Computed example of a mutant assay.
Amino acid sequence: MQIDNQITTITEGKTQILIPRGALEQKVPPRDIAFFNPRAKLSRDFSIIVYSTFLKNFEGQKLFLDGLSGLGARGLRVANEIPGTEVFVNDLNPSALELSKKSAEINNLANYQVSKNDICQFFNAFSKKGSRGAIVDIDPFGSPAKYIDCGIRATVHKGMLSVSATDLQVLHGLFKDACKKKYHGIPVKTAYSNEISIRLILGLTISVAARLDVEATPMFVETNQHYYRVYLRILNKPDTRDQIGYIAHCKNCGNRRATSESISSCELCSSTIELAGPLWIGKLFDKDFVAQMIQNIPDYVDKKCEKAIQKALLESEMPACYYTLDEIAERLKSAPIPLDQIISRLQQNGFSASPTSFNPTGFRTNSKIDKIKEIFSA
Rank of each mutant, 00 (worst) to 15 (best):
E274M: 02
R21V: 13
N224C: 14
A125Y: 11
L339E: 01
Y112L: 02
K182A: 01
S95F: 13
A291W: 10
G203I: 06
L92Q: 14
R211S: 15
Y231M: 05
F285T: 05
E25G: 03
S127C: 13
T324Y: 00
C269P: 12
E81L: 07
I206V: 15
K181Q: 05
V290W: 01
N57A: 05
V114C: 04
S52F: 09
P187R: 02
I19W: 10
G159K: 03
L202T: 04
I3E: 14
K158W: 10
L71C: 11
Q292S: 14
I309T: 04
A308L: 13
L268M: 04
F285V: 05
K146Y: 07
D4Q: 15
N224W: 05
K116P: 01
G22F: 09
S265Y: 14
K307A: 10
D340N: 14
N111P: 08
T166G: 06
L339A: 06
P355Q: 01
D137W: 04
A378Q: 13
K62W: 09
F122L: 08
N359Q: 13
Q121V: 14
P319H: 04
D299K: 09
A308V: 10
R241A: 14
N349G: 13
R74W: 02
T11A: 10
T8A: 04
H157Q: 03
T205F: 05
M160R: 06
V78Q: 00
L71M: 11
E98Y: 11
K62C: 02
Y51T: 03
N107D: 12
I119E: 11
I119A: 15
T15S: 08
T272G: 12
G142F: 12
F358T: 07
E195F: 13
G70T: 07
V136F: 12
K287W: 13
F54S: 04
R229M: 08
T240D: 15
G350Y: 10
E25M: 14
I186P: 00
D340K: 15
K128A: 11
C250S: 03
I138V: 15
T53W: 07
C253W: 01
Y228P: 01
T53I: 14
G173Y: 00
K287H: 15
I234W: 03
G203M: 03
N93W: 09
K189W: 01
